[in-house]
Simulated scan of single mutants.
Amino acid sequence: MEHYRKLERMYLSANFNKEIYQSTTIHIEEEQATIQLTIEPKYFHALGAIHGSVYFKLLDDAAFFAVNSVVNDVFVLTTNFNINLVRPISEGTITAIGKVKFKSRNLFIAESSLVNEDGKEIAFGTGHFAKSKVLLTEEIGYK
């Protein structure tokens, strides 16, 4: 579906992702988004494993884009997101999988899980999302 491809291009063209998360890939389908990141030392904290902010970003982004897959007209906003860090990781590729769990006219809830190459969960999260007033247009990268 073209909506999913436009969301993928929007994600990959965001300045933050182009500058910091260059090894990221994303795939969006109905009510689900999958994001992969190859681990690099630039994501590490002082103990040599990925910083919690990386976990948060991947989990939030996967849940966010799962929700925006079912919202075709406007950009959604994260209103709340909670994460649980299960184990550290310092090498390989990690995958965040976000899925819509609840949707109504004004509220969406999505869960996401972050796994290593062996499919072992390293973190998970749940978020609440709401529609914004920002239209999905080329000006925000939706093209």
Rank of each mutant, 00 (worst) to 15 (best):
M1D: 14
E2F: 08
H3N: 13
Y11E: 01
Y11C: 09
L12R: 04
S13T: 14
F16Q: 09
F16K: 09
N17W: 04
E19Y: 12
T24G: 11
I28R: 01
E29C: 09
Q32C: 13
I35W: 04
L37K: 03
T38G: 12
E40F: 08
E40P: 07
P41G: 05
K42E: 14
Y43R: 04
F56S: 15
K57Y: 15
L58M: 10
A62H: 00
A66I: 03
A66T: 02
A66V: 10
V70D: 04
N72Q: 15
D73C: 13
D73R: 02
F75T: 10
F75L: 12
T78E: 00
N80V: 06
F81R: 06
N82F: 07
N82D: 11
I83N: 06
V86K: 15
S90E: 07
I97E: 00
K99Q: 09
V100A: 01
S104R: 05
R105E: 12
R105C: 05
N106C: 11
I109M: 04
A110Y: 00
S112K: 01
S113V: 12
N116L: 06
E117G: 08
K120P: 07
K120N: 14
K120L: 11
E121H: 04
A123M: 06
A123L: 01
T126P: 03
H128R: 15
S132T: 11
T137V: 08
E138R: 08
Y142E: 09
